[in-house]
Amino acid sequence: MILPILAYLLFSIGPALGTFLVSLTNYAGIPGQAVQFVGLANFISMISNAASGFSASLETTLVFALSVTVIQNAVALALAVLLRNPLPFVGALRSMIFLPAALGVTINGILWLLIFSPSQGPAAGLLAAFHTSSAFFGSPTLALVLVIFVQIWANVGFTALVYLASMDNIPHELFEAAQMDGAGRWSVFRKVTYPLISSATTVNVLLATVGSMNVYDIIYVLTDGTSNTNTLGMYMFNTSFEGSGDLGLGASVAVMMFVLTMAAALPLQWFLRRREVSV
Protein backbone atom coordinates (compact mmCIF):
# COMPACT_ATOMS: atom_id res chain seq x y z
CA MET A 1 0.00 0.00 0.00
CA ILE A 2 2.91 2.35 0.71
CA LEU A 3 4.50 1.83 -2.70
CA PRO A 4 1.37 2.67 -4.71
CA ILE A 5 0.70 5.78 -2.63
CA LEU A 6 4.30 6.82 -3.12
CA ALA A 7 3.89 6.33 -6.87
CA TYR A 8 0.75 8.45 -6.76
CA LEU A 9 2.43 11.23 -4.83
CA LEU A 10 5.42 11.13 -7.12
CA PHE A 11 3.72 10.94 -10.49
CA SER A 12 0.32 12.49 -9.97
CA ILE A 13 -0.47 14.77 -7.11
CA GLY A 14 3.11 15.86 -6.46
CA PRO A 15 3.70 17.21 -9.97
CA ALA A 16 0.24 18.78 -10.00
CA LEU A 17 1.07 20.75 -6.85
CA GLY A 18 4.58 21.26 -8.15
CA THR A 19 3.09 23.38 -10.92
CA PHE A 20 2.47 26.14 -8.36
CA LEU A 21 6.05 25.87 -7.13
CA VAL A 22 7.68 25.91 -10.56
CA SER A 23 5.52 28.87 -11.58
CA LEU A 24 7.37 30.98 -9.01
CA THR A 25 10.80 30.23 -10.48
CA ASN A 26 12.76 31.00 -13.63
CA TYR A 27 13.33 27.29 -14.30
CA ALA A 28 14.64 26.92 -17.83
CA GLY A 29 16.13 23.46 -17.80
CA ILE A 30 19.48 24.69 -19.08
CA PRO A 31 22.30 22.78 -17.38
CA GLY A 32 24.47 24.98 -15.22
CA GLN A 33 22.00 27.81 -14.91
CA ALA A 34 20.87 28.29 -11.34
CA VAL A 35 17.16 28.14 -10.67
CA GLN A 36 15.98 31.22 -8.87
CA PHE A 37 12.87 32.01 -6.93
CA VAL A 38 11.32 34.96 -8.74
CA GLY A 39 8.05 35.34 -6.90
CA LEU A 40 5.20 36.47 -9.09
CA ALA A 41 7.48 37.84 -11.81
CA ASN A 42 6.25 35.29 -14.37
CA PHE A 43 2.65 36.28 -13.78
CA ILE A 44 3.39 39.98 -13.83
CA SER A 45 5.35 39.90 -17.08
CA MET A 46 2.80 37.59 -18.66
CA ILE A 47 -0.11 39.90 -17.88
CA SER A 48 1.51 43.34 -18.19
CA ASN A 49 3.70 42.63 -21.21
CA ALA A 50 1.47 42.94 -24.26
CA ALA A 51 4.02 41.09 -26.41
CA SER A 52 3.77 37.96 -24.24
CA GLY A 53 0.74 36.85 -26.22
CA PHE A 54 -1.13 36.00 -23.05
CA SER A 55 -4.18 38.16 -23.66
CA ALA A 56 -4.57 36.89 -27.22
CA SER A 57 -4.34 33.33 -25.93
CA LEU A 58 -6.86 34.07 -23.24
CA GLU A 59 -9.30 35.38 -25.82
CA THR A 60 -8.77 32.37 -28.08
CA THR A 61 -9.30 30.02 -25.15
CA LEU A 62 -12.56 31.69 -24.17
CA VAL A 63 -13.90 31.60 -27.73
CA PHE A 64 -12.79 27.98 -28.08
CA ALA A 65 -14.19 26.81 -24.74
CA LEU A 66 -17.49 28.63 -25.05
CA SER A 67 -18.13 27.44 -28.62
CA VAL A 68 -17.14 23.87 -27.86
CA THR A 69 -19.21 23.63 -24.68
CA VAL A 70 -22.37 25.13 -26.15
CA ILE A 71 -22.31 23.51 -29.60
CA GLN A 72 -21.12 20.13 -28.40
CA ASN A 73 -23.93 19.88 -25.87
CA ALA A 74 -26.60 21.14 -28.25
CA VAL A 75 -25.56 18.74 -31.03
CA ALA A 76 -25.16 15.85 -28.59
CA LEU A 77 -28.64 16.44 -27.24
CA ALA A 78 -30.09 16.47 -30.75
CA LEU A 79 -28.19 13.29 -31.64
CA ALA A 80 -29.35 11.61 -28.45
CA VAL A 81 -32.98 12.43 -29.26
CA LEU A 82 -32.54 10.99 -32.77
CA LEU A 83 -30.63 7.92 -31.69
CA ARG A 84 -32.81 6.83 -28.81
CA ASN A 85 -35.48 5.52 -31.14
CA PRO A 86 -35.40 1.84 -32.06
CA LEU A 87 -34.34 2.58 -35.63
CA PRO A 88 -32.54 0.14 -37.89
CA PHE A 89 -28.73 0.66 -37.83
CA VAL A 90 -29.03 2.77 -34.71
CA GLY A 91 -26.30 0.74 -33.05
CA ALA A 92 -23.98 1.31 -35.99
CA LEU A 93 -24.68 5.04 -35.94
CA ARG A 94 -24.00 5.22 -32.20
CA SER A 95 -20.70 3.39 -32.76
CA MET A 96 -19.74 5.74 -35.56
CA ILE A 97 -20.01 8.90 -33.48
CA PHE A 98 -18.14 7.24 -30.61
CA LEU A 99 -15.30 5.86 -32.74
CA PRO A 100 -13.08 8.99 -32.54
CA ALA A 101 -12.76 8.36 -28.78
CA ALA A 102 -10.89 5.16 -29.61
CA LEU A 103 -8.91 6.49 -32.57
CA GLY A 104 -7.24 9.17 -30.46
CA VAL A 105 -5.95 12.65 -31.23
CA THR A 106 -3.18 11.61 -33.62
CA ILE A 107 -5.40 9.75 -36.07
CA ASN A 108 -8.31 12.17 -35.65
CA GLY A 109 -6.01 15.11 -36.26
CA ILE A 110 -4.22 13.66 -39.28
CA LEU A 111 -7.53 12.55 -40.78
CA TRP A 112 -8.84 16.14 -40.76
CA LEU A 113 -5.49 17.60 -41.78
CA LEU A 114 -5.70 15.44 -44.88
CA ILE A 115 -9.34 16.22 -45.60
CA PHE A 116 -8.58 19.94 -45.26
CA SER A 117 -5.20 19.84 -46.95
CA PRO A 118 -5.00 23.05 -49.01
CA SER A 119 -3.15 21.41 -51.90
CA GLN A 120 -4.61 17.96 -52.48
CA GLY A 121 -7.46 17.52 -50.00
CA PRO A 122 -11.05 16.78 -50.96
CA ALA A 123 -12.30 19.95 -49.24
CA ALA A 124 -9.97 22.04 -51.40
CA GLY A 125 -11.26 20.15 -54.45
CA LEU A 126 -14.78 21.04 -53.47
CA LEU A 127 -13.90 24.72 -53.10
CA ALA A 128 -12.06 24.64 -56.44
CA ALA A 129 -15.30 23.61 -58.09
CA PHE A 130 -16.70 26.93 -56.90
CA HIS A 131 -13.56 28.72 -58.10
CA THR A 132 -12.37 29.58 -54.64
CA SER A 133 -9.76 28.28 -52.23
CA SER A 134 -8.70 28.41 -48.60
CA ALA A 135 -5.66 27.66 -46.51
CA PHE A 136 -7.96 25.92 -43.99
CA PHE A 137 -5.77 25.18 -40.94
CA GLY A 138 -3.32 27.77 -42.22
CA SER A 139 -5.98 30.47 -42.49
CA PRO A 140 -5.99 33.01 -39.65
CA THR A 141 -9.76 33.35 -39.89
CA LEU A 142 -10.83 29.78 -40.57
CA ALA A 143 -8.34 27.74 -38.52
CA LEU A 144 -9.95 28.34 -35.15
CA VAL A 145 -13.38 27.42 -36.52
CA LEU A 146 -11.99 24.18 -37.91
CA VAL A 147 -10.16 23.35 -34.68
CA ILE A 148 -13.40 23.89 -32.78
CA PHE A 149 -15.15 21.65 -35.29
CA VAL A 150 -12.62 18.81 -34.90
CA GLN A 151 -12.74 19.03 -31.10
CA ILE A 152 -16.54 18.76 -31.17
CA TRP A 153 -16.46 16.05 -33.83
CA ALA A 154 -14.19 13.95 -31.64
CA ASN A 155 -16.07 14.38 -28.36
CA VAL A 156 -19.73 14.77 -29.23
CA GLY A 157 -20.19 10.97 -29.25
CA PHE A 158 -19.27 10.67 -25.60
CA THR A 159 -21.57 13.56 -24.67
CA ALA A 160 -24.45 12.07 -26.67
CA LEU A 161 -23.99 8.67 -25.02
CA VAL A 162 -24.20 10.21 -21.55
CA TYR A 163 -27.45 11.94 -22.59
CA LEU A 164 -28.74 8.68 -24.06
CA ALA A 165 -27.98 6.74 -20.87
CA SER A 166 -29.77 9.36 -18.85
CA MET A 167 -32.81 9.28 -21.15
CA ASP A 168 -32.98 5.50 -20.79
CA ASN A 169 -33.35 6.00 -17.04
CA ILE A 170 -36.57 7.95 -17.39
CA PRO A 171 -39.54 5.73 -16.51
CA HIS A 172 -41.55 4.95 -19.62
CA GLU A 173 -44.85 5.73 -17.94
CA LEU A 174 -43.97 9.40 -17.81
CA PHE A 175 -43.88 9.63 -21.60
CA GLU A 176 -47.10 7.69 -21.94
CA ALA A 177 -48.82 9.88 -19.37
CA ALA A 178 -47.66 13.01 -21.16
CA GLN A 179 -48.87 11.70 -24.52
CA MET A 180 -52.16 10.67 -22.96
CA ASP A 181 -52.59 14.25 -21.79
CA GLY A 182 -52.17 15.33 -25.38
CA ALA A 183 -48.68 16.77 -25.13
CA GLY A 184 -46.97 17.26 -28.47
CA ARG A 185 -43.52 16.05 -29.34
CA TRP A 186 -41.83 19.35 -28.46
CA SER A 187 -43.61 19.79 -25.15
CA VAL A 188 -42.82 16.20 -24.16
CA PHE A 189 -39.16 16.98 -24.72
CA ARG A 190 -39.37 20.38 -23.06
CA LYS A 191 -41.44 19.35 -20.06
CA VAL A 192 -40.47 15.70 -19.48
CA THR A 193 -37.22 14.65 -21.13
CA TYR A 194 -35.16 17.79 -20.71
CA PRO A 195 -35.81 18.38 -16.99
CA LEU A 196 -35.27 14.71 -16.19
CA ILE A 197 -31.85 14.52 -17.82
CA SER A 198 -30.63 17.58 -15.93
CA SER A 199 -28.01 15.61 -14.01
CA ALA A 200 -26.53 14.44 -17.32
CA THR A 201 -26.57 18.05 -18.52
CA THR A 202 -24.60 19.09 -15.44
CA VAL A 203 -21.98 16.41 -16.04
CA ASN A 204 -21.72 17.05 -19.77
CA VAL A 205 -21.47 20.82 -19.51
CA LEU A 206 -18.87 20.62 -16.75
CA LEU A 207 -16.78 18.00 -18.54
CA ALA A 208 -16.91 19.99 -21.78
CA THR A 209 -15.99 23.23 -20.01
CA VAL A 210 -13.06 21.80 -18.06
CA GLY A 211 -11.94 19.71 -21.04
CA SER A 212 -12.05 22.50 -23.60
CA MET A 213 -10.28 24.99 -21.36
CA ASN A 214 -7.35 22.65 -20.85
CA VAL A 215 -7.07 20.68 -24.09
CA TYR A 216 -4.13 21.19 -26.39
CA ASP A 217 -3.09 17.82 -27.82
CA ILE A 218 -5.53 17.97 -30.74
CA ILE A 219 -4.47 21.58 -31.45
CA TYR A 220 -0.84 20.48 -31.34
CA VAL A 221 -1.58 18.03 -34.17
CA LEU A 222 -3.75 20.38 -36.23
CA THR A 223 -1.95 23.74 -36.09
CA ASP A 224 0.63 23.70 -33.27
CA GLY A 225 -0.99 26.93 -32.15
CA THR A 226 -0.37 28.86 -35.36
CA SER A 227 -3.00 30.86 -37.30
CA ASN A 228 -4.72 32.31 -34.23
CA THR A 229 -5.35 28.98 -32.54
CA ASN A 230 -2.89 29.53 -29.71
CA THR A 231 -5.09 28.62 -26.74
CA LEU A 232 -3.65 28.87 -23.24
CA GLY A 233 -2.92 25.15 -23.22
CA MET A 234 -1.02 25.44 -26.48
CA TYR A 235 0.73 28.56 -25.22
CA MET A 236 1.73 26.71 -22.03
CA PHE A 237 3.06 23.76 -24.04
CA ASN A 238 5.03 25.81 -26.55
CA THR A 239 6.48 28.13 -23.90
CA SER A 240 7.68 25.15 -21.91
CA PHE A 241 8.84 22.71 -24.54
CA GLU A 242 9.48 24.54 -27.77
CA GLY A 243 11.88 27.37 -28.53
CA SER A 244 13.11 29.01 -25.35
CA GLY A 245 11.98 26.21 -23.06
CA ASP A 246 10.86 28.55 -20.31
CA LEU A 247 9.43 26.00 -17.87
CA GLY A 248 8.81 28.55 -15.12
CA LEU A 249 6.66 30.69 -17.37
CA GLY A 250 4.96 27.59 -18.75
CA ALA A 251 4.03 26.51 -15.24
CA SER A 252 2.56 29.94 -14.49
CA VAL A 253 0.41 29.66 -17.61
CA ALA A 254 -0.74 26.27 -16.28
CA VAL A 255 -1.63 27.93 -12.97
CA MET A 256 -3.60 30.62 -14.81
CA MET A 257 -5.45 27.89 -16.71
CA PHE A 258 -6.27 26.20 -13.43
CA VAL A 259 -7.56 29.43 -11.90
CA LEU A 260 -9.68 30.19 -14.98
CA THR A 261 -11.06 26.66 -15.10
CA MET A 262 -12.10 26.88 -11.45
CA ALA A 263 -13.55 30.36 -11.97
CA ALA A 264 -15.71 28.96 -14.77
CA ALA A 265 -16.50 25.50 -13.40
CA LEU A 266 -17.39 26.23 -9.78
CA PRO A 267 -20.16 28.82 -10.39
CA LEU A 268 -21.36 26.74 -13.33
CA GLN A 269 -21.58 23.67 -11.15
CA TRP A 270 -23.49 25.58 -8.48
CA PHE A 271 -25.92 26.91 -11.08
CA LEU A 272 -26.40 23.56 -12.84
CA ARG A 273 -26.88 21.58 -9.64
CA ARG A 274 -29.53 24.02 -8.47
CA ARG A 275 -31.68 23.49 -11.53
CA GLU A 276 -31.49 19.71 -11.34
CA VAL A 277 -34.71 17.77 -10.81
CA SER A 278 -34.70 14.34 -9.26
CA VAL A 279 -36.61 11.51 -10.91
Binding site: P15, A16, G18, T19, V22, G29, F237, A251, F258
Partner: peptide, 11 residues
Protein backbone atom coordinates in the same frame (compact mmCIF):
# COMPACT_ATOMS: atom_id res chain seq x y z
CA UNK B 1 -5.54 19.96 -9.99
CA UNK B 2 -3.57 21.94 -12.56
CA UNK B 3 -2.03 20.40 -15.65
CA UNK B 4 1.16 18.81 -14.36
CA UNK B 5 3.18 18.28 -17.52
CA UNK B 6 5.89 20.85 -16.65
CA UNK B 7 6.83 19.44 -13.21
CA UNK B 8 6.54 15.92 -14.62
CA UNK B 9 9.11 16.80 -17.24
CA UNK B 10 11.48 18.29 -14.65
CA UNK B 11 10.98 15.22 -12.46
Amino acid sequence: LPVSIVPLFIE
